[in-house]
Design a protein around this nucleic acid. Sequence first.
DNA 1: GTTCTAGAAC
DNA 2: GTTCTAGAAC
Length: 220
Amino acid sequence: MSNLSVLRTYAQTSPSKLPPSVLFSSTSTSMTVFDAFPKAIFHFLILPRIQPPFTTSELSNLRTLLKGDKERAKEVITALNEDAKTLHKEIEEEMMARYGFKWGICTGFHAVPSMNHVHLHVISDDFCSDRLKNKKHYNSFHPKLGFFISLDEVLSWFEATPSYYSSMIKLDEKQYEPILKEDLVCWRCHKSMKNIPTLKAHLQEEWETQARREKAKLAK
DNA sequence: GTTCTAGAAC
DNA sequence: GTTCTAGAAC
């Protein structure tokens, strides 16, 4: 099995077949899995299951889904949104239990994904992880650069004019790929970082500062 | 997507 | 000399 299709193989099997090291939870229409290479303390993927009337190819990625039937696409994205809300609560409970405070969670899609099958990232905004190793990893999740497209943003496209919808769903690789090569900038304080090790140390400090602040607030 | 590593950057 | 990045291979 290719690395690039592993999510597709998950999405077309029964959740009961997946080991607990992979599967976090599931519903009749989706499954939530642990990202195999988490880029933050919490990092999950929500996958729509492949079952009639949906086909493997239309669920290949966000672009193929959105260029198909708009109502069907909206149905899939709306269902993912419901699952994401549930997952948010569960992550926040775990944040409190393990760390004693809550912090931000980013929910969205990569404009140009590397793996087959639609997957919604649900990732905590610390971006502190041994698995975050290069510029592409970081820039692909940076909330402001544009490569990471929030779920709310995608939902808003359905309410926009048809011409706006059709322009946004192009998700052209040539437009988005250069973002991954942009200079490293802290998404919180906007400072430029000279390299990955410096950025990682800075992100760790930012998160620890937030931890101290939030815990002090809760102790009052 | 990751791993490996040559050569650039320091 | 060591650290770090980026592209090829998988």
